[in-house]
Design a protein around this nucleic acid. Structure first.
Lengths: 116, 116
DNA sequence: CATCACGGTATCCTTTTCGACACTATGTGC
DNA sequence: GCACATAGTGTCGAAAAGGATACCGTGATG
């Protein structure tokens, strides 16, 4: 409540511009996409997105959490268990993510086709 | 033909990741969004997106052109006239852009609501 | 006792991004 | 003659993003 949106404080530009501010960063959409299929633990995400480094993953997850798009649940166990899941707001991005994925599938899935 | 995708050469990750590679950059989606409404000249774009600098706008437009998302038409007149319009590929991003805009409108248009 | 897994931090460093500013050529208007 | 508009380019430098690596505490495992 006290300060929900570190990145969403801008008021300039159209809603497109402001929305982009929430999902910039190389990995955010990818993370959200993975979480669409269900809750994942930190290292499960790491394994699903091999190209992301630990620091980056932490970083992006913290920003997503700060923006209210995901929920971070810490289980005070040993070894520690931390689960990430989409918030309602995060889940509401599903149409965007799926539209992007559909576009990627249509336009990028077979590069040799467009080279032909 | 010879080398269409400077940014699309990556093959790693899912289609979502690869699609993101084409539309990263702060302004690309915004530019595409403006162009959805019709052809625009360079300075018209600048005026519609006041926050972008001239160098950045040029830069992003060149990348969009190189990725085959927009078409740049130069009219050899004086003063020079250059028009930018969406290619078919660029226009195919419309669902993504509109989904993002819809989301932004729903989630970001009135920040005070979510603070309540 | 050493190692591993978990979920991170902290630090350093390189790369990329991006803004500010100056500059270009040409024709028109003042 | 000077400024303005068009559509940029070039250079500089600051800032941010992002990668590599090392480290943390704990409990189980070997």
């Amino acid at each position: 409540m006290t300060q929900l949106h570190p990145k969403a404080t801008m008021t300039t530009g159209c809603s497109v511009e402001r929305a982009l501010n929430l999902i910039d960063g190389k990995w955010k959409i990818v993370i959200l996409h993975k979480l669409l299929k269900g809750t994942l633990r930190f290292n499960e995400l790491r394994r699903q997105i091999p190209a992301v480094t630990q620091r980056m993953l932490t970083n992006q997850l913290r920003e997503l959490e700060a923006d209210g798009l995901i929920i971070r649940t810490v289980y005070p166990e040993v070894p520690p268990r931390v689960e990430y899941s989409l918030s309602a707001r995060g889940r509401s991005l599903e149409p965007v993510i799926m539209a992007l994925k559909a576009w990627g599938d249509r336009n990028l899935s077979s590069p040799e086709v467009e080279a032909a």
